[in-house]
C-alpha cells in the first residue's frame, strides 16, 4: 500500500499536473500560432466587448435559444460543470492534502455540500450517457471519444464517493480515485476535454462575429 500510495500521490501526481499544465500551455500556444498564420480573416474581428457579451449571455441558464429548447440538458450541464469544478477544489479532504503536503490552506465547503455536488456530477454523467444511448440525434453522432471522456470524467467522482463512504475495499478505492483524477487532468489537453481550454476562444469568436459583423446576438 505504501509504495502504491506514494507512487500515486507523489511522482504520478506531479506527472499528471505537469502534463495538464505544460500540455495546456503547449496546445494553446500551438493553436494561437496556427490562428495567427491561417485565420487572419477571423482574428481580425475579435473584440473584447462582444466576446464578453457572448460569454456572459451563454453563462446564464435558459438565456440562449439552445438552452431554452433543451431544459433537461441545460440543468444537467450547468449543474455538472459547476460541481465538477467547485467540488474538487473546495473539498475538505483535498484541502487537507494541500495543507499536509504544502502547508496551503483555504476555505472549504461543508462535506455535506461537496458530497451532494459529487452525486450531482455522477447523476449528470448518467443523464449524458442516457442521452447518448436513447436520444437518436445524440446516438447518431456519438463515438469512442465521446464515451471515453464521459468515463474519464465520471470515474474520479464515482470512486471519490465510494472512497468517501468507504464502500468496497477502501485502499483500492482511494488509489483508483487518485489515479482516475490524475488521468482526467492529464487527458484535458489531449482529448475532447480540451473544450475546457478552447471553448472560451470559439465562443469569443462567435460572439465577436455576431456582435461586430452581424450586429445580432449569438444566443
Amino acid at each position: 500500500m505504501h509504495e502504491i500510495y506514494n507512487l500515486v500521490t507523489g511522482p504520478l501526481a506531479w506527472l499528471a499536473w505537469g502534463i495538464f499544465i505544460v500540455g495546456s500551455i503547449y496546445r494553446l500556444a500551438i493553436m494561437y500560432i496556427l490562428a495567427k498564420k491561417k485565420d487572419a480573416p477571423s482574428l481580425a474581428y475579435m473584440s473584447w466587448g462582444f466576446s464578453l457579451r457572448s460569454i456572459i449571455n451563454w453563462l446564464i441558464p435558459f438565456n440562449a435559444l439552445g438552452w431554452r429548447r433543451n431544459p433537461l440538458m441545460t440543468v444537467a450541464t450547468f449543474a455538472f460543470h459547476i460541481c465538477l469544478v467547485v467540488a474538487p477544489i473546495f473539498l475538505l479532504a483535498h484541502v487537507a492534502l494541500w495543507d499536509q503536503f504544502f502547508g496551503i490552506t483555504y476555505p472549504v465547503l461543508d462535506e455535506k455540500v461537496t458530497d451532494i455536488m459529487t452525486m450531482i456530477v455522477v447523476a449528470a454523467c448518467l443523464i449524458f450517457a442516457a442521452r447518448r444511448i436513447f436520444q437518436k440525434e445524440v446516438r447518431y453522432v456519438s463515438g469512442f471519444q465521446d464515451w471515453l471522456i464521459l468515463v474519464i470524467a465520471v470515474l474520479p467522482f464515482a470512486t471519490g464517493l465510494l472512497a468517501y463512504y468507504q464502500l468496497g475495499n477502501y485502499q483500492v478505492m482511494i488509489v483508483l480515485h487518485i489515479l482516475s483524477g490524475e488521468i482526467m487532468l492529464a487527458a484535458i489537453p489531449f482529448t475532447r476535454l480540451s473544450h475546457m481550454l478552447f471553448s472560451v476562444f470559439t465562443r469569443s469568436y462567435m460572439g465577436s462575429e455576431f456582435g461586430g459583423v452581424r450586429r445580432v446576438k449569438d444566443w
Binding site: R69, N70, M73, V141, R192, S194, H195, F201, T202
Partner: peptide, 12 residues
C-alpha cells in the same frame, strides 16, 4: 481544428 476537436457531440 478547434471546432472539430471540441464539438462535444451533445446534439443540442
Amino acid at each position: 481544428a478547434a471546432y472539430s476537436e471540441i464539438c462535444m457531440r451533445c446534439g443540442l
